[in-house]
Design a binder for these strands. Structure first.
Lengths: 92, 92
DNA sequence: AATATATTTGAACAGTTGAACAAATGAACA
DNA sequence: TGTTCATTTGTTCAACTGTTCAAATATATT
């Protein structure tokens, strides 16, 4: 996999409004799937499918707490990238 | 268009290896289509189609010089975003 | 004007992705 | 154990995307 392929794969994860909404919400802190479903107004199934992709891309991680699965941004690199993206993209 | 939709649309432009390669090359300076085609090893047509999307997304601009069309990153926000993305995504 | 080069455009096709639904799994609790 | 709730997984189908080829456009050169 070339650099461009790797980077493009990550951008693909962020190229969907539902998945990106999830990431933006996670900037505020961790959330369980049903919270994310409510806040994004997307079905639980759709959110879960999206989270799977995000997890495969290394963008989020999760922990179980009872019946709930709490997701959060994988690390500060993801957070920093999102914040930078927001800041700059507002001006594009 | 919501924030997430707008940001996702921009990420979509960067979510393709060919288009992202073009953007990464343009970090070094402006290029004509045939240069980009050679450097990315993609067909001229494919590169041109990609550039059209990038231009529609406000990520690149261009100028004509004779028969050649020179493309460059639209502004420093695009450049800064790409550099930040590279830096952080390398660690994801 | 005729030709060559650079780029753009449109159509078609193959491969990929997203949405919706149903079924399966994992955990809590009566 | 059986039930319920939260989440995940698999499947199907429609919609989207990237690539290629052929044709069109734009500019330069002779």
């Amino acid at each position: 996999m070339t650099d461009a392929e790797g980077l493009a794969a990550i951008f693909s994860c962020m190229a969907d409004p539902t998945r990106l909404s999830v990431l933006l919400i996670l900037l505020e802190g961790e959330r369980c799937v049903c919270d994310l479903s409510e806040e994004t107004e997307a079905s639980v199934s759709s959110v879960s499918h999206g989270l799977r992709l995000l997890r495969a891309g290394g963008l989020v991680s999760r922990r179980r707490e009872g019946r709930h699965m709490y997701y959060r941004l994988a690390d500060h690199h993801v957070e920093a990238l999102l914040r930078t993206a927001i800041e700059h993209l507002e001006h594009i």
